[in-house]
Design a binder for these strands. Sequence first.
DNA 1: TGATTTCTCCATTCTGCTCT
DNA 2: AGAGCAGAATGGAGAAATCA
Length: 236
Amino acid sequence: MLSVFSRMVAPKASTMLALAALKYPTRRTLITTAIRLQPAAGATKAKTAKTTATKRAPAKSTVTKSKAKTAAKATKAKKTAKPTKAAAPKKKKVAKKPKVVKPPRLTKEDLPPKGPGTPYIYFYKKYMAGVQRPLTMEAVNEHAKAAGATWKAMTEQEKQPFHEEYRVAAEQQSKALAEWKENVDPAIVRRINKHRTKLGKPKVHAVEIASIWKSLPEAEKQVYVKQAAEKKTAMA
DNA sequence: TGATTTCTCCATTCTGCTCT
DNA sequence: AGAGCAGAATGGAGAAATCA
């Protein structure tokens, strides 16, 4: 757990606060860590089994295709090769690249719960439920336009149930978000924030640590300042 | 024999459109 | 940005094929 921060060069006092907050791992953190340690479990295994089954009996066309590609490649190489007197010197072997172990993709469960949307969303959901399937892209667009027109034509009283549905969903979302923030693995937050930074979006969670830091009494702040200084000295 | 490429499957993301 | 939809595009992973 603490290894998450082990790569930090110069620890800040606010970091020490975050560390203190992370000192006691939550249930989810432990579960997530366990999952990280078993990357080949579950879906991957099933996938592998399926893939293996396919690979063990590869379609003739696949093999032929592959061989044909290779043959084409060889022919191309022959064609492009310049008629030199001596054979070209062998290329020096490129240094082995260290195998990078990538973390598993973020799932919906890893991400913070989405917002409640708007009252219109709930109206549109109901509207589309009554639409005949299957739908083409054009049909979806047509229905979206029609739904918008219908929504505009509705009275406030008619819209009321959808406003109420939105209100309930907003309450639930708020609770779910608070729970997510409490239990989320900091490693996941870092990955989410890395992606959000790319998209130019504000970071999650870390903002809260900053606000907690700001509201902290000076005496308490000094505890973390001291810890940070000590760690800095130890790392020097 | 180890490294790289190719192939396949599956999951995820994006697109277009609406309103708040 | 959130929901809904279908389909295309993309990315990741593992195994097999190929290359040096």
